[in-house]
Amino acid sequence: MVDEGLAKISLELAYSAMAVYTAAFIGYAVAAASTAGKRDDARVRADLATVGAGGPGAAESGAVVAAAEAVPETAVSDGRFPGQKAAGIATALTLLAFVLELGSVLARTASVQRVPWGNMHEFTLTTSTVLAGGFLIVALRDRSKQVLGVFVVPCVLLALGLSVTVLYAEAAELIPALKSGWLVVHVMAAMIATGAFALGALFSALFLVKERSDRRLAAGEIAEPGRVARLLPEAGSMDRMAYRINAFTFPLWTFAVIAGAIWAENAWGRYWGWDPKEVWAFITWVVYAAYLHARATAGWTSRGSAWIALAGFGTLMFNYFGVNLLVNGLHSYSGV
């Protein structure tokens, strides 16, 4: 019934994916370091070149121009950025790791002959894959966001690492309560929503970093942006990205909760019973509803709503780790 050989292959693929993600992370770190350094160099050189070209000393200006041209990666105007090569390699590695991780998910699926989300190991493995896939969609469409892999890949790696270690559960058949078509619908919706909310929270967090840096620069508290802030795209674009992701995910989360309610009605005889998992799903829903209202309210800053989004994601994480592992309820399917 359960193919243990395939389960082993799944685990090996997961470990391989972790190795490649680690390599990808190093690539992103290199890209980030060179971006942070060279963006400034490029600015300085370009300024010098401008001054030089406008100034009287022709020989001097020629030398500066030569210096500037010697660093082709610093061409800030054609949409490319320094460290892009490293970021590109890292993104290719991320893609490879994603394929390995997807292979791991599929092997597990074949091993247990059902959807691979019956316990926390499987759910975390699949969610981590969704997160990586979501990031790749963003990164392959907009190369300037590739360097954000330095933040996303560690999250993917962390989830994957937890999944194959403390959360690991041997491949097994499901308990009767989980044998339902709703497992596919309800859990898949919850999983995609969780991965997407994670990505949204990441953008909100990075936006807060960048926004704070911008504010302090404007107030003259700091002379130049810090290492992290220098890496980040413009604050407004991250804010909009976070909003788009969260606004896309909110109906999906609503759907996940409703599908869960329909399933609960079918299995337990009531569609809502204030089980701890249900309570926290409701809290998450309310907090993200507050987020969307805050976005539409005059007088609420992007900063305020970004904090609400982070709070919402915090409730989601508590629901996943806190409720599954600490609180006893009807959703005690962790398998840990």
């Binding site: 309570v279 409701f282 809290i283 309310v286 907090v287 209202h293 805050a294 309210t297």
Partner: peptide, 17 residues
């Protein structure tokens, strides 16, 4: 409405603990 939403989220917490 925002305030009440926050209150509702907060009021739900003790019932889960």
């Amino acid at each position: 409405a925002l305030l009440l939403l926050f209150l509702l989220a907060l009021a739900s917490v003790p019932g889960s603990l």
